[in-house]
Design a protein around this nucleic acid. Structure first.
Lengths: 137, 137
DNA sequence: GTTTACTCTATAAAGTCTATAGGAATTATA
DNA sequence: TATAATTCCTATAGACTTTATAGAGTAAAC
């Protein structure tokens, strides 16, 4: 399951990409337009800012804006920042690898090989889709 | 993330498929071999039994056995029984569809279209892989 | 200096996952 | 028929995660 956090994050980014604004857009505007709790969205955008997807401007006339062009923002990057690993089990994760405690030999594990296939496919979709692709849809 | 429940379930089924036994195999044997808590595995196998993937024999000499040939058991079926929907958001689920409360129009939702791609790919992998494929690996 | 808006930390509430407990029911077999 | 082995079923505890909310702090504009 995709968490609301990630879902809202992608929606907010899509909104920013669509709006194509020069000036920063305040959280309140995004929250209202996308039906997201403003306080919750605050923490999400903060995460995306720390992940260098967004930047912000404080004070009056402030808000959030994309740090890169929509074509340059891969969904995989956003997903990892908000949701964490793309892999469904840590033992097939590229960026968040962990050994399974119950598994003596990964290469003989049926779940491992299966989830490797799933990861490869999901990853390729999230890597090839950018924010620019999402606003076309 | 794949839950331990599903992971253990697939491992247990793989064990049964590999063992190729005529007689039922007791939970205790599977649990020991796969490093799974026996009590936890009990509830998992019960779920798989209700999903008609497994059947069981009670009493002395009892245990669990596959209801179909490994080639006939799709991983998608197992996944749905243990983990639930394959889709990452309910609004793109085939078997567990639900409308999003925050989304006025699904067809215009960027997350929806993206997750549709992910679902299609994951689904095709889980549909084409059977237990028989898993024991080869 | 007032208003607007982001920043940061803490925490509450609800939900989910993992696992365990304990007893009931069933079967084989000595 | 008694015993041991095994599944069946329900309840529940404990830990963890998710989804927010609160409130005080910081910065910028005018």
């Amino acid at each position: 399951m995709l968490s609301r956090k990630t879902k809202y994050g992608i929606k907010a980014l899509t909104f920013l990409a669509k709006s194509n604004a020069i000036d920063p857009i305040p959280i309140s505007v995004i929250a209202k337009s996308e039906n997201i709790s403003q306080k919750f969205l605050e923490s999400i955008l903060l995460t995306l800012r720390k992940a260098r997807v967004l930047s912000s401007k404080k004070g009056k006339g402030g808000g959030y804006y994309l740090l890169k062009k929509p074509e340059e923002i891969k969904i995989a990057e956003v997903y990892r920042a908000l949701e964490g690993p793309i892999a469904m089990v840590p033992c097939v994760s590229l960026n968040f690898y962990e050994k399974c405690d119950d598994c003596p030999d990964e290469n003989k594990c049926s779940v491992h090989s299966l989830m490797l296939q799933v990861r490869d496919n999901t990853l390729s979709i999230l890597e090839k889709n950018t924010l620019a692709d999402l606003i076309k849809m």
